[in-house]
Amino acid sequence: MLTFLLQRYYAPLAAKGVVSHWKVYYQDESRFGLMTVLRRAITLAGIKPVGAYQHRFIYRYCYGLVEPLTGDHFFITAPQVNTLYFEYMLEEFSRHQPQVFKFIFVDKAGYHRAKALQVPQNIRLVYLPSSNPELNPVERLWGDMKNKVAFHNFSHEQELEAWITNTAKSYGQRQIASLTGYPYILEAISKITTSIE
């Protein structure tokens, strides 16, 4: 399928000099809130762990894109998930390495498929099968971030947003590639690259 998409969408822009090469990304959003995230804690046998907990329904969302081959990544924090913010993220991401044509694998959330959605010319959305989050390697990154936020109690949403931004920025390309580089994805990209060359 990717070979067809390359011929159909990438090749014409490459022939015009609009883009010079292509990459495959995976995208997803994750919710982080003021409500304390709980995880298991190691204690002595029979001793229940005690810690501060808050029950506040205020959230921020992290839009993330990762490229499993090299670990290239891009994050934006927003107060909601909807078509408007998704389109804004795509516009910003199109400016990230603008010479690269980006195939982005996404789930079938309504705002990913909205008729009003405007997709930049150097981006093509590819939809993953429904109800298969295990196919999206970004989920492993979210799991790692959720482990890091466990037991944190943020006093307000600005502090939460700063934590999301700083934590996302703390991931290096090697770490992203290690978390998201599923063997079957790397093998597929390698085979297509070799066949084209």
Rank of each mutant, 00 (worst) to 15 (best):
K146F: 07
Y88E: 13
H112F: 07
H73M: 07
Q158E: 15
S178F: 13
I196D: 02
Y182V: 02
R95S: 09
L90D: 03
T193Q: 14
Q97E: 15
Y25C: 03
L69N: 03
Q97D: 15
V50Y: 09
M35F: 09
T83I: 02
N147S: 13
M89N: 02
L117R: 07
E134D: 09
G33F: 06
S178M: 13
Y61K: 07
P120L: 09
L90Y: 05
A114S: 14
R39F: 10
V126T: 06
Q118D: 11
D144T: 11
V149Y: 04
P183V: 11
A114Y: 04
R140Y: 10
V37S: 10
L90V: 10
A114H: 11
L179Y: 05
S30Y: 03
Q27N: 12
Y53L: 11
L13R: 08
L2H: 07
S30P: 01
I104E: 01
N122K: 01
W163T: 01
H152T: 06
V81N: 01
Y26E: 04
F32Q: 01
L135E: 05
A188I: 04
I58D: 10
K48F: 09
M1Y: 15
L128D: 04
H55K: 14
Y10Q: 00
P68N: 03
Q173Y: 05
S30T: 10
D72E: 14
H156Q: 08
L5V: 06
A52R: 13
V126C: 12
K169S: 11
R39Q: 14
L160V: 05
E29F: 03
V81W: 00
Y59K: 05
M1C: 11
F75P: 00
E161A: 12
F105A: 02
Y59G: 01
S170F: 09
D72V: 07
R95T: 08
L160A: 03
I185V: 14
E91G: 06
L186G: 02
H96Y: 15
G71S: 08
H96R: 11
I123T: 06
G17D: 10
D144C: 13
I176F: 05
